[in-house]
Structures are given as structure tokens and as C-alpha cells.
Design a protein around this nucleic acid. Structure first.
Lengths: 330, 330
DNA sequence: TTAAGCCGCGTAACCGATTACGCTTTCCGG
DNA sequence: CCGGAAAGCGTAATCGGTTACGCGGCTTAA
């Protein structure tokens, strides 16, 4: 099996020039419809395909889009990402583009960040999507900005006006707080990390409490931390009768621990999570959750990026509305 | 902000030739350690980075690895994939390579398959990982084979001897069957699809039954189908007292439906899933499952691919052992 | 002392596409 | 019937690297 044909060989075979072949494959330049048809047909027949690297080189870009997200852990999959990815792929397939994914460590190690920055600078991508989260995401935005690379960020980032799909975390948490207040819960707790201040704030607003009036337990984004948070609360604040968790993974871990300690949910303690990942609704009890519409967010991010790639320049931020989905756990 | 420097400009600035610069960045060719140090240092200082497309063009390959997997659905994330992806990323990061992911539709649409084949043929990748599943995966292997592209498949595929990381589905199912028999269950059911014949066979062996002696309900890979399967069984075979589901997603859906119909698990009906995805262990009751060690499989696939990229040629298939993880649902 | 060999590096030919430019032909208005 | 515009296509420069080859200088062995 010999080498794949180059455009030169292919062109000679058809008795046309390489320029014509190239024009047949790109929508650019003037070429008669008849010739294009003939060339495309022959190409399919003979299995000719333009070499993608040569094409990228002369065009100065590849059309690839990259996804950079802070990887929470090496141990557990990130379900938040999984949902967004679904939306991203959906939109991307419509556009006929491909996706390169690049996890970068949450506790941004210098080498890993350098590697990411390298990819941003070396022209690998025509555009990138950055999921906000760790400190690293900020650096990546700066890298993209200073390279003139089109980017869109998912989530809020300080000092960033546009080019973002925003999650309405605060309002979502507010809805949960309001709900707890209206259903007569008196002793609220919040489980989350330092990155989720907005959620806590919204929660307190909804509850009508000051931020130091509620119980807070630390938690990142793992089942285990959710379970640990339950134990912490159980030990120190047994009066708690409702909790908002900064994500569903925490909530699921929390519920698991609570049930196995004999508590009844929602009778003894009501639980609401965040993100509305798929498994939540199939738990028993089914988990109430603030739906961020992550799939839609992924889609919107790609669409926004597509607009920028289409030459639209910086773009206004969009906010995706959220809902409180009530199920059995509250 | 002007264009990024090219190798020519950068070389002149340092007073060396482009060849020397190139040699400093690749491990190839002879160059004194002192010069390399100097060049690399200056490059970092001035922000020079070799253009990736030019490099790919002259080297004839990009070092990128692609992941092709059958996307079950546009609606639900694929947790099986999520777990494997974790392992793949883990290994890939060690190798410093990047991953492009390419879902292809389960019900392989012609255009989507053409797009995938196109990417395989146009030199986008140095190697690819193909997740077996739909009919499409077979075609992709053929494409890779006839293009001389290094590939590794995850899962079993007919007519394929090597270059694969195998899942020991049959044995896993056998373990589950044996367990049910030993714990006195009399009326087994199996829920799964046509792609999972091996699981059914192993299950029956473990049970010591013929394949037509057990109850079978159809199911693909969604929570909903799991719930539907429960209803089907409940209606037509209320005597069933244990089920094996072809994946955890089905199992979770099944459990949910069973519990909401007032059945007790495992007292009335014992449930075992497949894949041991993360959420399973945090359900209530925690789901027993056949662990395929998906994360490890992802890692092994990448390692195998790396060996092939290193020039090892076709490689023997490896099988990753599986375990039956017993939790509360059985 | 000299031939052989290696080291370190530069010159220039590639890799396989895109595209600016120019040439021929056709079309059309005046 | 003529001049100019536009359509259709070919030639060759270009994208930014890699690498085969060659050359001078230094080391080593005879």
C-alpha cells in the first residue's frame, strides 16, 4: 500500500492544476461548477484527501477547538464536565469541527499550566473554550487574549466582561433558600468550597439570613466530601434540618451518609443539590437540585465561539437561566 | 502586537541557523548541550515556539491521539465513556499528548461515519483509540488498518486478534450468576441489549441454566430503559427475584422503578449492575456491580497505543480482569 | 605527521497544501 | 466591431518547520 496521493499527483491525473483542485475543495476562488463536480467526484473515487497539516500551515489555522477545564481529581470523573461536554459535542457536530480536550489540574501545577499555555500559543486551535474554576483558568484567558485567540469562558471570572456564558449561580441558590424558608425549615446549612461564594450568598438571601447565621461545611466536588460534611454537621450542629450543596456530587454523598445514619430525607433533613446531573433524578430519594442547564450551556458556548470565529469580535456575555427542580429530597 | 516569530527570525536573532534551532527543540540530530541550553533559554525568554502545523507537515504526523466512541444518545451523558476517559487522560498527560474526541452516532448515520473516516484518513492523528460497540466501530478499525494508522480498540470486536484491551464481560457476568445461585435466588432475569450477548451467556453459566430458561428484558444504556425493563418484568414475570443489568445505568433506573413500586431491595429482588461507575456506590441501596475497572482500561489502552506509536507493530490483546463488587443491592 | 572519524553546525531541498498574480477566453454594452 | 470586465484556470511563491548532505575543525590511532 503506497503513500497517499498528494495534490500534485492528483491534479496531474485529472489534467488540471493544483490551484484548481484546491479551489474545488475550498469554497474560495472562482471555479466552474462543472469542474468542481468532476474533481470532487474523482477525489472520492481515487481516495484523494487534502493533507490536513499542509492545509493548516498555509491557512494559518486548523479549525480545531480546544476545551480547557480544571480537573478536580485524578480519581473521580467530573460529572459537571460530562454534562457540558454533551452540549459541546452536540453543537460541534453540527459545525463539523473537532474537539481537543485538555484537563488542567485544579491545583495548577506549573508544568501542566505551561503545557496548556503552550498549546494556546502554538496555534493548535482556532478557538478555545475555558471552563472557569481554578486559578489556572484566569491564566489561560490571559494567554488566549494576548495571542489574539478566540475564546469563550464558561462561568464567571473576575475582570471579564464579555465572551462568557454565565451560570446564574446566585439566583439558583436564592431559589433554594427561599424554598427552604417557605417550607418552614429553620436550621439551614451550606456545603461548598471557596469557589462558590456566590452560591452561599444567594442562599442566605433566599433564607433571609446573614451569612454568619447559617451553618457551613467545607466541600469540594466529590462524593466522599459530601459524606464527610454530613458527619461534621451531625457532630457539631445536629439541629440542621436543610442543606444546600454546591453540587450534586456533594449532595449525593451527603444523602448517602445521612440515610445510613438513619435519618429520613426529607423529613429530618431536606437536601438540595446543584447542577442537576443526570443520576440525581434516579437516586432514591430523587435529589432536588438547582438545574444550571449544563447541556444548554455547552451548546451556547460553542455557538458563541462560532460567532467569534466567524469574525464577530468580542461578544457580550450571556446568562443561562436556572431552575430549582424539586424532587423527593426536599 | 505583531506576528509570532518564525524559526528563521528567531535563528537570525541568535546568530545560528534554523537547523540548529530545530535540533534544539527535537531530540534528534547532533547538537552541543551548551547550544541547546542557550537556545531553549532564549526561546522561553523571547516567546518563540515552533509552529505546530509546520512541524506536523514536515514530520508527516502530529502526535495527536483520537478517541472514537459510539455515542449512545444525544440526551444522556455516557458514563461508561466518562470513566474510561478518566483513565485515558491520566495516561495521556504522562505522555504529554493531547486527545481529540469524536463521538459517532450509535445508529451510525452515513455522513457522521464518513466524517470520522475522513479524520482517520487525512492524517489528523498519529494513533487512535476506538471504543467497540456499534457496527460503526468495525468500519473505523478497517479504515485505520487500511491507512496504516496505529490503533487500539477497547472491547471485543469480531475478527480482531490483537491491538485490543479486552473487557472480561463473560466472566464478570458469570460471577454474578454464581453469586445469585449461591444466595438462593431462583428466578433470575437479565436486562441488556443485543450487543451484550456474552454477558447473558456468562450469567447463565454462572446460574447453571440454559439461556432460554431465564427471563430477559431488552435494554440499552439509559436510566429510562432500566425503569421500563422493571415494569415489563413486573407485569409479565412477577416471580423474578434477582436481575443482572448489562450496565449500571440500566440498573439504577431499574432500582428506582422497583423502589417506587414498593419493592424491597435486595429482600424482594436483588440487583447487580455492570461497569461499576462511580455513582453506583453512593446510591441507596448502594449498587452491587461487576467492576470492569474502566479507568484502568483507559490507561492500558493509551499505554498499548504508545507502544505501537513507539514502533512496536501489532500488539497482543490484553484482558483486564473484572471483579464482582458486592454492596447493598444484592 | 597524516588519515580517518566524529562533532557541531549551516545550506538548501523538501513536506503538501493555499493563493496572489497573470494569462486566455468569453461576454456584453456602446 | 471594439474595449473592458469578469470568468476560469495555471504558475510559482509562500506558509514555517525538518533533515539530508556537506564542510571545517578537532580528536585519535597508526
Amino acid at each position: 500500500m503506497n503513500r497517499k496521493p498528494t495534490i500534485k499527483e492528483f491534479a496531474r491525473l485529472l489534467g488540471v492544476s493544483t490551484a484548481t483542485v484546491s479551489r474545488a475543495f475550498n469554497r474560495t476562488g472562482r471555479i466552474s461548477e462543472a469542474t468542481r463536480q468532476r474533481i470532487v467526484a474523482k477525489a472520492r473515487e481515487l481516495g484523494y484527501q487534502p493533507n490536513i497539516h499542509a492545509r493548516s500551515l498555509s491557512q494559518g489555522q486548523s479549525g480545531a477547538v480546544g476545551l480547557f477545564y480544571p480537573s478536580i481529581s485524578d480519581e473521580e470523573p467530573d460529572y459537571f464536565l460530562t454534562e457540558i461536554l454533551l452540549g459541546i459535542n452536540r453543537s460541534l457536530q453540527r459545525l463539523g469541527r473537532s474537539l481537543q480536550i485538555h484537563p488542567f489540574p485544579f491545583q495548577a501545577s506549573a508544568e501542566a499550566m505551561d503545557a496548556c499555555r503552550g498549546r494556546i500559543q502554538d496555534g493548535s486551535f482556532s478557538g478555545i473554550i475555558i471552563v472557569a474554576g481554578a486559578r489556572g483558568s484566569q491564566e489561560l484567558v490571559e494567554a488566549a487574549e494576548s495571542n489574539g485567540l478566540a475564546y469563550v469562558v464558561v462561568g464567571r471570572m473576575s475582570g471579564l466582561e464579555g465572551n462568557a456564558v454565565l451560570l446564574d449561580n446566585e439566583r439558583g441558590a436564592l431559589l433554594a433558600g427561599t424554598y427552604f424558608r417557605n417550607t418552614g425549615r429553620r436550621h439551614p446549612a451550606y456545603i461548598g468550597g471557596s469557589l462558590d461564594r456566590r452560591k452561599k450568598r444567594g442562599f442566605c438571601k433566599g433564607l433571609g439570613r446573614a451569612e454568619d447565621e447559617i451553618v457551613v461545611a467545607e466541600g469540594g466536588s466529590s462524593f466522599r466530601q459530601g459524606s464527610l460534611a454530613f458527619e461534621a454537621i451531625r457532630d457539631r450542629h445536629p439541629e440542621v434540618d436543610c442543606v444546600l450543596c454546591a453540587n450534586d456530587v456533594l449532595a449525593i454523598g451527603f444523602v448517602k451518609a445521612a440515610l445510613s445514619h438513619g435519618l429520613r430525607i426529607p423529613a429530618d433533613i431536606a437536601v438540595v443539590g446543584f447542577d442537576d446531573i443526570r443520576p440525581s433524578r434516579y437516586m432514591t430519594p430523587a435529589l432536588s437540585s438547582v438545574s444550571l442547564r449544563l447541556v444548554e450551556i455547552g451548546e451556547r458556548a460553542v455557538e458563541m465561539l462560532a460567532r467569534r470565529l466567524g469574525g464577530e469580535g468580542p461578544v457580550r456575555a450571556e446568562t443561562v437561566e436556572c431552575d430549582l427542580i424539586l424532587r423527593e429530597s426536599s
